[in-house]
Simulated assay, not measured.
Amino acid sequence: MVIKLYTTELSPSVRASIMAFEIFQVPYENIEVNLSDKSMLDPEFLNKNPMRTVPVLEDEDFILHDCHAILMYLADAYGTEDTWYPKDYKARALVNQKLAFINEIIFSGFKKIAYSVVVERRKTLMPQWIETIEEGYSIMEKFLNKTTYIATDDVTIADLSAYSNMSCLIYVIPVDRQKYPKTLKWCHVMEMQPYCKEFNNKSAATFGDLYKLIMSH
């Protein structure tokens, strides 16, 4: 039975999961969840994920939500290269550390901005939101001073998660070339990866266009 993945296009977490499905060559059925009609409040969906979020992975009676949990699962279950989610416990701990940072700073910042602008149609950003994103950029720069990618010298699932969010955030708060040169270079490297070109960049640009449209009217 083909795995089902419940998605919505503009979600960075969804795009990171889809990239992982493609990288690890896992067949799946993409089931789009309509946010506007509150499908996430349906009892059937709440039974799958009481947190009312996407993505949700459904593999027969096995159901998993949370992007990072899905990335870990796919890498462990289907990955053939050790680099994406290393078996070495120290290298894996570094990946887990960066995933925690993404949740706490990068995704948290994006979520607040996206909800306030796209859902609530606010046209001003709270100063602390901007400060949080700038802090995230600064921390990423420090990570990238030590390794080629944000966790190790190889691209990992942490980069998929980080870039899916960063590719949207750069439309809100561009990465300053003078302050964060390594972060900007990393963004360009990720942007050119085949899986990002095919499954991320277009949707990130759609978010950027929507953001600009709302903020200009």
Score class of each variant (00 low, 15 high):
89 Y>K: 05
113 I>W: 05
99 L>N: 01
89 Y>A: 06
110 F>M: 11
112 K>L: 00
138 S>K: 12
97 Q>G: 12
137 Y>C: 02
139 I>F: 11
95 V>M: 02
95 V>T: 08
133 I>R: 02
87 K>M: 01
140 M>Y: 04
93 A>L: 09
88 D>S: 01
121 R>W: 01
144 L>T: 03
104 E>I: 10
116 S>L: 05
87 K>P: 02
115 Y>N: 12
146 K>G: 06
131 E>D: 14
127 P>C: 07
123 K>I: 07
111 K>R: 15
137 Y>L: 02
94 L>A: 10
104 E>N: 14
112 K>Q: 15
123 K>F: 01
124 T>I: 11
139 I>P: 00
127 P>M: 01
100 A>K: 11
146 K>C: 10
122 R>F: 01
117 V>G: 00
104 E>M: 14
102 I>N: 13
135 E>Y: 15
99 L>A: 03
96 N>R: 07
105 I>H: 12
140 M>D: 03
115 Y>F: 11
111 K>N: 14
87 K>L: 04
128 Q>F: 10
113 I>Y: 04
90 K>M: 13
91 A>W: 00
92 R>D: 07
138 S>I: 01
136 G>Y: 04
127 P>Y: 00
128 Q>S: 14
135 E>F: 13
91 A>N: 15
129 W>A: 01
131 E>S: 15
114 A>D: 12
116 S>Y: 02
143 F>W: 04
108 S>N: 10
123 K>M: 09
134 E>N: 11
92 R>L: 03
142 K>C: 10
112 K>S: 14
107 F>C: 13
111 K>D: 15
101 F>V: 12
103 N>F: 04
146 K>H: 07
122 R>A: 12
117 V>P: 04
112 K>R: 12
111 K>T: 13
146 K>L: 10
107 F>S: 15
118 V>I: 06
131 E>P: 00
121 R>V: 02
109 G>Y: 00
128 Q>H: 11
140 M>W: 10
100 A>E: 09
119 V>C: 02
99 L>G: 01
120 E>Y: 02
114 A>H: 12
139 I>G: 03
132 T>A: 13
117 V>I: 05
102 I>D: 15
104 E>S: 14
128 Q>A: 15
115 Y>W: 10
118 V>A: 04
90 K>P: 02
110 F>T: 06
120 E>C: 08
149 Y>G: 07
133 I>D: 03
118 V>M: 13
128 Q>W: 03
111 K>I: 10
122 R>P: 00
121 R>E: 08
96 N>Y: 02
108 S>C: 12
144 L>D: 05
111 K>G: 08
90 K>N: 11
148 T>K: 12
88 D>F: 04
132 T>C: 14
130 I>K: 05
